[in-house]
Amino acid sequence: MPLPSSLSDARAVVFDAYGTLLDVHSAVQRHAAAVGPEAEALSATWRQKQLEYSWVLSLCGRYAPFWTLTERALDHALARHPDVDRAVRPALLEAYRSLDAYPEVASTLEALRAAGLRTAIFSNGDPAMLDAAVRAAGLHPHLDAVLSVEPAGIFKTSPRAYDLVPERLGIGAAGIVFVSSNRWDVAGAAAYGFTPVWVNRAGLPDEYPDLAPARVIRGLDGLLD
Rank of each mutant, 00 (worst) to 15 (best):
M1T: 13
M1E: 08
L3A: 08
S5N: 10
S6V: 12
L7H: 10
A10D: 14
V13M: 04
D16P: 10
Y18L: 01
T20D: 09
S26G: 08
Q29T: 10
G36S: 05
P37R: 03
A39V: 11
A41S: 13
Q48M: 13
K49I: 14
Q50E: 11
S54C: 06
R62D: 09
Y63T: 14
Y63F: 15
A64S: 12
F66D: 04
F66H: 08
T70R: 00
E71F: 04
R72M: 14
L74I: 12
D75Q: 05
R80P: 01
P90K: 09
P90L: 10
L92G: 03
Y96Q: 02
L99G: 01
Y102Q: 02
S107W: 04
L112E: 12
G116M: 13
L117C: 10
R118F: 06
R118C: 08
T119Q: 00
A120E: 05
I121R: 00
F122G: 03
P127W: 00
M129I: 13
L130M: 15
D131P: 03
A132M: 09
A133N: 15
P141N: 02
D144F: 05
A152I: 10
I154E: 15
K156G: 04
K156I: 04
A161V: 12
A161I: 11
A161K: 04
D163I: 08
I176A: 07
S180T: 06
N182I: 09
D185E: 15
D185K: 02
D185T: 06
A187N: 06
A189V: 09
Y192L: 05
G193D: 00
T195S: 15
W198A: 09
V199P: 09
L204V: 05
A212N: 10
R215D: 14
D221M: 00
G222F: 07
L223I: 11
